[in-house]
Structures are given as structure tokens and as C-alpha cells.
Simulated scan of single mutants.
Amino acid sequence: MRASLDEVYRTGVARTDGDVRCGLPGLFDLTYEPRRAADGTVIGIWVTGVETARLCRLGGSAGCTEPAEVKVADSWGDSAWGCPAHVEDAILNVRTVFIASEELGGLAAYLNR
């Protein structure tokens, strides 16, 4: 991340890094955009991050390189995308995990009935 900041500051050219681990759970696409003074010199960098769910996040410390296809959640509000094999394992071994789906309108539809 630091190298990307330095490069954008030095060159003045925006860039995006995909699937970055940045201290938060999950992977993020980070976009670095130069901010310029009236004379055009770079005076700062605007960084935006978007969480991506491209890879399974349920592989534990070993990780998983399979595509994420299913979102699971628990009653505490935690959620993650996973590959079918790891989602099945989580559902069978974690009592409060369920498949998070918007097909039925979610809890908002129930609350707004």
C-alpha cells in the first residue's frame, strides 16, 4: 500500500490495486487518486476502498483460492463470502451460521410489513 501511495504521489497518475489485505477482515480494491493544488502539483492522495468477495474467506489460516459463491452470516452480524465446500463446513460446524440471501427481501421486508 505504501509503495502505491508513493508512486501516485511521485507520478501524479491514479492507480487501483486489487484484492489488497489492509488490516481489516476481507480483501479490498484500493484506488489511489492524486489531489492537486491550483498549479497542478500533487498535494495529497484520495484513497477509496471497496470490499471484494472474489475469493473464499472461510479457509481459515490456510486460506482458500476458490471463488466465493455463497454469503453466510451469523446472529451476531458477522458475514463472509465462501466457496461451497467451506460454506458447507461452516453451516455444519457453527451453530449460528446461515446462508445470507436477499431472495425473500431480507429482514427489512419483514420489518416494513
Rank of each mutant, 00 (worst) to 15 (best):
R2F: 14
R2H: 13
A3S: 13
A3M: 04
L5V: 15
D6N: 15
E7K: 14
E7R: 15
V8F: 08
V8R: 09
G12D: 10
G12M: 03
V13S: 05
R15K: 14
T16K: 00
T16G: 00
T16S: 10
D17A: 06
D19V: 07
R21A: 14
R21H: 14
G23L: 00
P25Y: 00
L27H: 09
D29Q: 03
D29W: 04
D29L: 01
L30E: 08
T31E: 06
T31M: 00
T31R: 13
E33N: 10
E33L: 14
E33G: 03
E33K: 13
R35Q: 15
A37Q: 11
A38M: 05
T41K: 03
T41G: 05
I43R: 13
I43T: 12
I45S: 04
W46P: 03
W46E: 15
T48K: 02
T48M: 04
T48P: 00
G49Q: 08
E51L: 03
E51H: 02
E51V: 01
A53R: 14
R54T: 06
R54K: 10
R57V: 11
R57L: 14
L58A: 11
L58V: 12
G59W: 06
G59F: 01
G60M: 02
S61K: 12
S61C: 06
G63R: 03
G63D: 04
C64A: 04
C64S: 00
E66P: 02
E66W: 03
A68H: 10
E69K: 13
E69I: 09
A73W: 07
D74W: 03
S75K: 12
S75C: 10
W76H: 14
G77N: 02
S79R: 08
S79T: 11
W81C: 02
W81P: 02
W81E: 09
C83S: 08
C83P: 13
P84T: 11
P84G: 01
A85W: 09
A85C: 04
E88K: 13
A90K: 12
A90P: 08
I91W: 02
L92R: 15
N93M: 01
N93V: 04
N93H: 15
T96K: 08
T96A: 11
V97I: 14
V97M: 09
F98I: 08
F98P: 06
A100W: 14
A100L: 15
S101C: 07
E102C: 07
E102S: 15
E103C: 06
G105H: 06
G105Y: 02
G105L: 07
G106F: 09
G106E: 01
A109E: 13
A109L: 12
L111W: 01
R113H: 12
R113I: 07
